Amino acid sequence: MQFEKIDLQEHSEKMFNFRKDTFKVSFGDASNFDKEAYLRWVEEKQKDFPEGFVLVKEDGRYIGQIELSIREYDGRTIGYVHLFYLVPDLRGKGKGEHLHNYAKQFFRNHKVHEYHLRVSPSNTSAIKFYYKNGMVEIGPEVDGKVIRMKGYL
């Protein structure tokens, strides 16, 4: 498995399709997903965290994507997972562990010991994966549309 820094010129369509799929899985609909706004956001975040925005490749095929950064939360610096994504045919087959390990190493490299993410309450397989990897639920956010979870290194 290789982790390849995102090149917006080359990868924008692949990234958009992966991100759009996450909206479908999490919220049942991706019709309001704004491609241009998303690509501008990635471009801005990538300036500070180029190694945090990667595509995952295996056997010559792009199979996933990770988006990571460092931010302030509740008066402390934490790692933040904006996106863990695997193509549907590889979910539930142990590949997520590689993405999670990449993220933990990224956070260690940035000297943070806590990381957070948000997940849709309906994405039960993702929640199960996060619990399995030692994360705990903090509580609902965005009027209950997502659950914030945290993990420690």
Score class of each variant (00 low, 15 high):
residue 101 N to W: 00
residue 23 F to H: 11
residue 23 F to D: 00
residue 35 K to E: 15
residue 76 R to P: 09
residue 21 D to N: 11
residue 67 E to V: 07
residue 144 G to P: 04
residue 40 R to A: 13
residue 98 H to L: 13
residue 91 R to I: 09
residue 97 E to K: 15
residue 79 G to C: 07
residue 149 M to Q: 00
residue 88 P to M: 05
residue 57 K to W: 08
residue 11 H to A: 10
residue 10 E to D: 08
residue 46 Q to K: 15
residue 62 Y to D: 02
residue 130 Y to W: 06
residue 25 V to H: 01
residue 51 E to W: 05
residue 17 N to Y: 12
residue 143 D to M: 10
residue 33 F to M: 04
residue 146 V to T: 11
residue 9 Q to G: 10
residue 35 K to Y: 07
residue 79 G to N: 07
residue 63 I to Q: 03
residue 81 V to P: 08
residue 27 F to N: 09
residue 122 S to G: 10
residue 93 K to Y: 03
residue 100 H to L: 09
residue 116 H to R: 14
residue 21 D to T: 12
residue 48 D to C: 12
residue 85 Y to F: 15
residue 96 G to S: 08
residue 29 D to M: 02
residue 14 K to T: 15
residue 150 K to Y: 02
residue 14 K to Y: 00
residue 62 Y to Q: 01
residue 11 H to S: 05
residue 2 Q to H: 07
residue 118 R to D: 14
residue 128 K to M: 06
residue 50 P to Y: 12
residue 99 L to C: 03
residue 65 Q to P: 12
residue 18 F to Y: 10
residue 4 E to A: 09
residue 125 S to T: 14
residue 33 F to C: 03
residue 95 K to L: 09
residue 34 D to R: 10
residue 51 E to G: 03
residue 49 F to Q: 03
residue 43 E to N: 15
residue 13 E to G: 05
residue 117 L to Y: 08
residue 29 D to P: 03
residue 88 P to I: 06
residue 23 F to Q: 05
residue 88 P to Q: 05
residue 31 S to H: 12
residue 88 P to N: 06
residue 98 H to G: 08
residue 64 G to H: 09
residue 3 F to W: 05
residue 76 R to G: 08
residue 41 W to H: 08
residue 87 V to Y: 00
residue 48 D to W: 15
residue 84 F to C: 02
residue 113 H to Y: 02
residue 46 Q to Y: 03
residue 27 F to G: 01
residue 118 R to M: 07
residue 123 N to T: 11
residue 13 E to H: 13
residue 75 G to T: 03
residue 100 H to N: 06
residue 96 G to T: 06
residue 16 F to G: 00
residue 69 S to W: 07
residue 4 E to C: 13
residue 151 G to D: 01
residue 59 D to N: 12
residue 60 G to M: 02
residue 100 H to E: 04
residue 53 F to P: 10
residue 45 K to R: 14
residue 130 Y to N: 08
residue 67 E to G: 14
residue 59 D to R: 15
residue 97 E to Q: 13
residue 67 E to I: 05
